[in-house]
Design a binder for these strands. Sequence first.
DNA 1: TAGATTGTTAATCGATTAACAATC
DNA 2: TAGATTGTTAATCGATTAACAATC
Lengths: 213, 213
Amino acid sequence: MTRDTKTAISLPTVRRLPMYYSILQEAASGKQENISSSQIAGRLQLESIQVRKDLASIGITGLPRIGFSVARLMDAIEDFLGWNNTSDAVVIGAGHLGSALAGYKGFAEKGLDIFAFFDSDKTKIGQKIQGKEVLDIERLPELTRRMHINIAILTVPDHAAQNAADVAIKAGIKAIWNFTLTKIIVPSGTIVERVDLAASLAALSSKLRQQIA
Amino acid sequence: MTRDTKTAISLPTVRRLPMYYSILQEAASGKQENISSSQIAGRLQLESIQVRKDLASIGITGLPRIGFSVARLMDAIEDFLGWNNTSDAVVIGAGHLGSALAGYKGFAEKGLDIFAFFDSDKTKIGQKIQGKEVLDIERLPELTRRMHINIAILTVPDHAAQNAADVAIKAGIKAIWNFTLTKIIVPSGTIVERVDLAASLAALSSKLRQQIA
DNA sequence: TAGATTGTTAATCGATTAACAATC
DNA sequence: TAGATTGTTAATCGATTAACAATC
């Protein structure tokens, strides 16, 4: 458990770790025992020094001439990202997007288990999505507390986002994965990670325009 | 058309513009004529200087004591992000996620029009999603060329991502909005904007862990 | 005029990249 | 041993933030 450097790993580094992991999976499936930073970097169009820096920051060391042990590296990343001890999450907003996310292969492997769906739309309540029941949003506080759930995935319509977030936080939710186009305001102490599609689309068209120009 | 500073606006700035726009919409709906950088910043938990810098970089100026004209600011952002001249896009992969994105309110306003869906699954071909037909992936090159479509939204299963991207690029697609967990490799000249959910989830749990610790 | 808010110029900060000695 | 690859230390780069004179 090389876990000495617990001093705030940078978010850019954290975001790259899953990419490294997917390269490692490939290597492992090819029975490759060791891998160099430049092999990883090459596959991801990054610089090898960045890979080494990132790995060093989560406390992993390699060996000159050998590189890094694929198996140990995978373990370390799984460990660091908490993929071993699964956390339960609820989805608030039982629409297409919620269904899509619930069906996403790979979330389960990455330690995220969707426990239930919540909606305020009475016609949706009682239906099943991916085998899990859609519950009345009123029951959120009860379930959150009983099951010790910290994470809510927010996929409600934009105009309902802030209100849903408020409800969730009141119910004891500690982290919100926000898929709406709305920037929600939360008290300090609550985590928000936003998947900002408007920002992403803006970046796409900006890059496209520059490319074409 | 204050469009002198066409010298590569930074991506972080571009990504913030839609947030500013949503604040402006609120202001406009409240009949507010002018807005200060600190008003915008306050609502978004940013610094006012960052707002001013961003706006300056797309060529907008304000007036001391007055601030910025809400209407002119909205126009400028719409203009800069190309929300006026709509571009057509295709969705490759007609699953839940594709449906969800197609149903996303606001994409239309943001200049993105989904023209058709493509899939290789024969059972899906011919069905309709959000009123648009699902076509055979084989027909992609024909349609891309005929309709001058530059953008593909990639929502296929992860293992099919690279292949689908290759097909799309061969068909003349210039920009790929990649929603898969796979990092796709493309020739230089092709744009990829990735919505990396694995990275986002990693960031979420990392922040949550730090918060709790 | 007085004062709020701008735009400019400089300082800070953090992340990435480069250079290279250490080492298996 | 020779040479590939590491980890360390320093340099660069770009974005954010601070300070403040300009100005409506």
